[in-house]
């Protein structure tokens, strides 16, 4: 699954960013990287809200994850 960032810039510069296809906390790391570049360009982005996607939304993006397999002894 490819990683995707969708950004909506509203009137007077409000920014809404949707991260899709990121595993674990990678989306937060990517948000930090983007924020760092924006700051260097003179755009201070102050978070108003951060909403994690629901399990069903993530499932729709990346598909159902298989439960990790573990070895069992058979005697």
């Amino acid at each position: 699954m490819s990683r995707r960032v969708d950004v909506e810039v509203g009137r007077s510069g409000q920014v809404k960013i949707e991260f899709s296809g990121f595993e674990g906390d990678l989306c937060y790391e990517e948000a930090e990287s983007i924020g760092k570049i924006l700051r260097s360009l003179g755009l201070k982005a102050v978070p108003v809200s951060i909403t994690p996607k629901t399990p069903s939304e993530i499932e729709a993006e990346v598909g159902v994850e298989e439960a990790p397999r573990r070895k069992v002894s058979v005697s």
């Binding site: 409000q14 991260f19 982005a45």
Partner: peptide, 16 residues
């Protein structure tokens, strides 16, 4: 995990 963030923005050219 993925998420949705909203930001308000301000321009300030202070890097240089």
């Amino acid at each position: 995990m993925s998420h949705i963030s909203s930001y308000k923005t301000e321009i300030k050219l202070d890097s240089a």
